[in-house]
Design a protein around this nucleic acid. Structure first.
Length: 446
RNA sequence: GCGCCCUUCGUCUAUCGGUUAGGACCCCAGAUUUUCAAUCUGGUAAGAGGGGUUCGACUCCCCUAGGGCGUACCA
């Protein structure tokens, strides 16, 4: 049987590292198994869902290299959900409830204060037809709950091993809201059946839901798919990530200059036994993917790791790959330039700084005590500059001035680049060229 | 409150009853016939606490502490 997985984001906001990680794990698993990856837009909440966000999801996935095989929108599938709803009603598994949100809230608090579990008491199940009619006559609209069997639901989880949820200890889940809107649970199960999803891979915050959902699969006469519940991410400080997801959207990471391969490598390897290194490609990451490598405790999301990965990705990037982007930034100064500076890049856009060092006008940094050394160096600069010039030139400067080591190289670097650090000067000097070098060594902005 | 999951170098992790407890990041040192970065090599460093079980426990069991998640007319 072909493996089919789905990723079902809501178009109520931008994708962030937490939910894209779930999507990525689905994608990697599908690829590793030669299966299919279904994108399912969970837009059942018509109020909050927007087309812009839906397009944002597609933009982000495409940018990360996560192609999908099929795409569905749940808003176009309401007839299917209604049909399932009728079947559940007919089977006596869906019952009408008339409590208000405030009432339920109050009851939960009372239960809690008495040390009882905050579970729905099924009062609505005891309503007589007459009572129901009275409530309806008052204009009350029902919401609908799924009647759980109250048993130990078991499954073999790909990520956590043998799992068990006692549905007797949980509230009957509300499937349909008072305003008639389908809550996530029913459409999800109906679609998983209809789309022949074989593996549901999601965060461990869904473990309890799975108990109820397996009952719904069964109530609809379907076999539940396999499940895998992965750990969630926590921040570098060990706190949950949810509080500051705003700054961790894929869109912002893209705008911040992070490489898709760095993001994908980071998210694929957090909380696994693989070292936090970039993969060669997203496909290579997929080939190496297995649930067996995943730890059972929350993975730490540290932005510093992403930055490191990002630098590593750029360091390994060929000129052929970088060229179009260099051109776009007006910083395509040839292969030698790219090879010289790529190891010194944070975000890719940092090439602009180096192209200015080579091509633009920079202000040399010449400290008072280094003036003599720099002046002598200027006079000794050969007429022709090539790849060997740096070594011969600096040796000559050393012999004449007696400056050596740090005291020799730093003044030259600072005068020629205006910076304290950067790529190998032997590679940079020929790119800067004689004319600019002479002027900078004279203290001119050039 | 209750339920589920988790707890190994500073950090991310390997180990599945017998290991000099392994790797990666960070850090430190050395190399790159003299600079910062990059690169390479080497090094420091660990089993939350307490009870069991066992010839033997990081590994199995219990308790305590700590963390994550759930307990919605959210997803």
């Amino acid at each position: 049987m072909t493996v089919r997985v789905r990723f079902a984001p809501s178009p109520t906001g931008r994708l962030h590292v937490g939910n894209i990680r779930t999507g990525l794990i689905n994608w990697l698993f599908a690829r590793a198994q030669g299966g299919q990856f279904v994108l399912r837009i969970d837009d059942t909440d018509l109020e909050r869902s927007t087309l812009e966000y839906e397009q944002g999801i597609e933009t982000d996935l495409a940018w990360l290299g996560m192609a999908w095989d099929e795409k569905y929108s749940q808003s176009a599938r309401f007839p299917l959900y209604r049909e399932a709803m009728e079947r559940l009603k007919a089977a006596g598994r869906l019952y009408a409830c008339y409590e208000t949100g405030e009432e339920l809230d109050r009851r939960r608090k009372v239960q809690l204060s008495r040390g009882q579990p905050p579970v729905y008491d099924r009062a609505a199940l005891k309503l007589t037809d007459a009572e129901r009619a009275t409530l309806e006559a008052e204009g009350r609209r029902p919401h609908w709950r799924f009647r759980l069997e109250g048993k130990r639901v078991k499954w073999d989880d790909l990520a956590r091993g043998a799992c068990e949820v006692d549905t007797a200890s949980m509230s009957d889940p509300v499937l349909i809201r008072e305003d008639g809107a389908f809550l996530y649970t029913l459409p999800s199960v109906v679609d998983d059946i209809d789309m022949a999803i074989t593996h549901v891979i999601r965060g461990e915050d869904h473990v309890t839901n799975t108990g109820a959902q397996i009952e719904i699969f069964e109530a609809l006469g379907a076999r539940a798919p396999q499940f895998a519940h992965t750990t969630l991410l926590v921040g570098a400080d060990g706190e949950g990530l949810s509080k500051r997801l705003g700054s961790l959207s894929i869109m912002e990471l893209r705008e911040g200059g992070y490489e898709p391969l760095a993001i994908v490598s980071h998210l694929a390897r957090i909380g696994t036994s693989d070292p936090l290194e970039p993969g060669e490609s997203i496909e290579a990451l997929a080939a190496a993917f297995t649930f067996g490598k995943m730890a059972r405790h929350p993975g730490r999301y540290d932005p510093a790791d992403l930055s490191r990965l990002n630098s590593a990705v750029l360091h390994a990037m060929s000129y052929a790959e970088a060229q179009p982007r260099l051109a776009e930034l007006g910083a395509d100064l040839g292969e030698a330039f790219w090879l010289a500076i790529r190891a010194n890049l944070g975000p890719f856009a940092g090439v602009s700084n180096w192209s200015r060092v080579v091509n633009g006008a920079i202000e040399p940094l010449i400290a008072e005590e280094d003036r003599a050394t720099v002046a002598a160096a200027k006079d000794l600069l050969p007429a022709m500059i090539d790849g060997d010039t740096w070594s011969r030139w600096t040796t000559a400067v050393k012999e004449q001035t007696g400056a050596k080591g740090r005291g020799l190289f730093m003044p030259l670097r600072r005068a020629l680049t205006g910076l304290d650090h950067g790529p190998e000067m032997a590679m940079l000097l020929p790119l800067i060229g004689r004319e600019k070098a002479v002027r900078r060594l004279s203290g001119e902005t050039a």
